[in-house]
Amino acid sequence: MELIASTRMYDVAPAAQAAWHALLGAAQARAGLDARFVEYRWPTPIGELWGLPGLYGAFMCGWPYALALQAGRAYTAVASVVPDWPAYQGQPRYRSEFLVRADSPWCTLADAAGSRYGWMVRDSQSGWNAPRAVLAKLAIHGGALFSESKGPYGNPRGLLRALAGNEIDLTAVDGWYLDLLRVHDADALAGLRTLAYTPWTPNPLLVAGPDVDSATAARLSRVLLTMHEDPQHAQLLRDARVARFVLPEAARYVRLIDMEREALARGYPEIR
C-alpha cells in the first residue's frame, strides 16, 4: 500500500509548505519509510483527504478526529505540534481569532451583532465548532446574531479575502494558521485586526489512517517525538516554527464534542 502525507492545513504559503515537507520528509527517512505528499487543495473538501487509503503523517482537524473516534473509525494519533511562539506556552494547543477590518469601531464580539458573518466549512474546529461555541453564549435563546451568515468560503485565505473585500464584517480563523501567515505572508492580513479569541483547545494532529497498521504509525511517531533532541534537526524545526512534537492524548479531544453539544443545548446549531 502506498503511503500518503499532507500538510494542507498549514501550507499557508510556498515557504511554509517547503518547511513542512522538509521536516516531515526527514522524519520519514529516519523512520525508514516513504510517504508521498499530496496537496488536495481547495475546492476539494479536506474531508475527502482524510478518507484516502494509506494516510500517514497528515494533519487532521481535532474535531473530525474526535468524531471519527466516537463513530469507531479510529485514526492513529502520530504526533501533535507544540508551536514555538510564546503564547502557546509550550503546549500543543491553538485557538481561533475573530477578525474584523482594522477600521472597524467594534471593541467586543457583542458589538458585531447585526453584521455579516463569514464562515469557512462546517467540519472545522477552528472555523466552525469553536466560534459557534463562543457565539452561542451571546445569542439570546439561540436566536440570530447576524444579519447574514455567509459560507462556505472553503479555506482561511478565502475568508481573509472576503473580509478585506467587504463581503463580510466578521470571521474566525485558526490562530496557528494566522501566526504562520504573519511569518510567511504578513501582507495577507493588511487592513485586518483581531477582535477576540476562542478558548485554547488541543490543536490539529498528525494522524495515520485506519488502514495503516499501528506499528508503521509508531515508527514515525517515535522519530517525531525525539527530533528536538537532535541538533541536526534544529533548523528544520525552526523553519516550520515547531518547538517539538508530543504524543497526542485522545481523551483531550473529546472536549471538542462537548463544545458542540453545549451549542446545541443553547439552541444554536448554526452560526447565524
Rank of each mutant, 00 (worst) to 15 (best):
R93P: 04
S96C: 04
V100C: 07
R101Q: 14
S104I: 09
S104E: 12
P105D: 09
P105G: 10
P105W: 05
W106N: 12
C107Y: 13
T108G: 05
L109P: 02
A110H: 11
A110K: 12
A112R: 12
A113H: 00
S115I: 00
R116C: 00
Y117R: 00
W119E: 11
W119G: 12
M120R: 08
V121L: 10
R122P: 05
R122N: 13
D123M: 13
Q125C: 12
S126C: 09
G127V: 01
W128Q: 13
W128V: 06
N129C: 10
P131M: 09
P131W: 03
P131K: 05
P131V: 04
R132W: 03
R132G: 10
A133E: 09
A133N: 13
V134F: 06
V134Q: 07
V134K: 07
V134G: 07
L135S: 13
A136R: 12
K137Y: 08
K137S: 14
A139F: 01
A139R: 00
I140P: 14
H141K: 15
G142E: 13
G142F: 12
G143A: 14
F146T: 00
F146M: 00
S147T: 05
S149T: 03
K150A: 08
Y153W: 08
N155L: 08
N155Y: 13
N155I: 03
P156N: 10
P156I: 00
P156H: 03
R157M: 01
R157N: 02
L159W: 04
R161E: 03
A162W: 10
L163G: 00
N166S: 11
E167V: 14
E167C: 10
L170Y: 09
T171P: 01
T171K: 09
A172C: 11
V173W: 08
V173Q: 12
V173T: 08
D174Y: 01
D174W: 00
W176M: 06
W176N: 04
W176A: 03
Y177M: 02
L180M: 07
L180D: 00
L181N: 03
R182Y: 01
V183F: 07
V183W: 08
